[in-house]
């Protein structure tokens, strides 16, 4: 038997997941709306807040909305290909992960294809729509180089989020439940990634660059595009390199995941 490419396996598994999901037709629209509601309310919140107060930490609505739109687009790049990772916790807890280990296919690939990301199409629509609209309105003189940088930054941001979620998947092999941790990460990113993160003070900002690397998702590369790197207490070259953080965070998260996998305890008999 010849080894197969992971791409072929990915397609096979994703197709099965899609067929499984199409059994529940009503769900398509409601889940699609679910994704939009999640991110949309936050955008609505920022709109209402800045409509009333004008500036936040010295940033106006156009800049804040641009940062948030970048984050939404990054989020779409995480949630469309990798969104099924959120089911890992449950699969590990009720022993369904057994089945993943019984097949000659990379476990991470199987986790990612556990569910077809129907709902995430809403996220993608919202994310790229918002990026187009607010990128247009943002105070940036767009050049091909800047657009290229934007694309890199959005991909990097998606990888940061994927890396964080993969880390939690690894954690689920040793913790009883990582549910609230994941929700915490998710809601913190959603709620606070739109703000200019430096406004929370230096210590908090550095924490967002290291412990919980949310600053790389959109804020740091956005300061480069908005020409506001002077707001950031980091050397400009380092801020400019921030899209690379995605690769680093993802590799760290994936390494942690594979290191923790042997500690799976397979509940039940």
């Amino acid at each position: 038997m010849a080894e197969q490419t992971w791409l072929r396996q990915y397609v096979v598994l994703e197709r099965a997941a899609l067929r499984a999901q199409l059994q529940y037709r009503v769900n398509f629209w409601t889940t699609l709306m679910g994704g939009v509601a999640y991110q949309g309310t936050q955008l609505l919140f920022l709109g209402v807040l800045l409509g009333k107060f004008g500036l936040i930490g010295g940033w106006g609505f156009s800049a804040v909305a641009f940062v948030f739109a970048m984050r939404l687009a990054s989020h779409a790049l995480y949630v469309v290909p990798f969104g099924a990772l959120r089911l890992t916790d449950e699969m590990v807890r009720d022993g369904e992960f057994d089945r993943v280990l019984l097949r000659p296919v990379n476990p991470f690939l199987q986790l990612v294809t556990r569910m077809f990301p129907l709902m995430s199409l809403g996220d993608a629509l919202l994310g790229f729509g918002a990026l187009a609209v607010f990128g247009w309105q943002a105070p940036v003189d767009w050049t091909p180089a800047k657009i290229g940088y934007l694309i890199l930054a959005v991909v990097g941001g998606g990888l940061v989020e994927t890396g964080i979620q993969t880390f939690f998947c690894g954690l689920s092999f040793v913790a009883t439940s990582t549910f609230s941790l994941r929700i915490f990460a998710d809601s913190s990113i959603t709620q606070f990634s739109g703000y200019p993160l430096t406004m929370f003070g230096r210590a908090t900002f550095y924490a967002f660059c290291t412990l919980f690397p949310m600053a790389f998702i959109s804020f740091l590369p956005a300061t480069v595009l908005l020409d506001r790197t002077s707001d950031v207490p980091l050397p400009t070259w380092l801020t400019t390199l921030s899209p690379l953080a995605g690769v680093i965070v993802f590799v760290l998260g994936y390494t942690f995941f594979t290191k923790m996998m042997p500690r799976y305890t397979s509940p039940g008999s």
Partner: peptide
Amino acid sequence: TFEVSGPLMV
């Protein structure tokens, strides 16, 4: 609908 995550999210 059997599956409720969508409506619950909304």
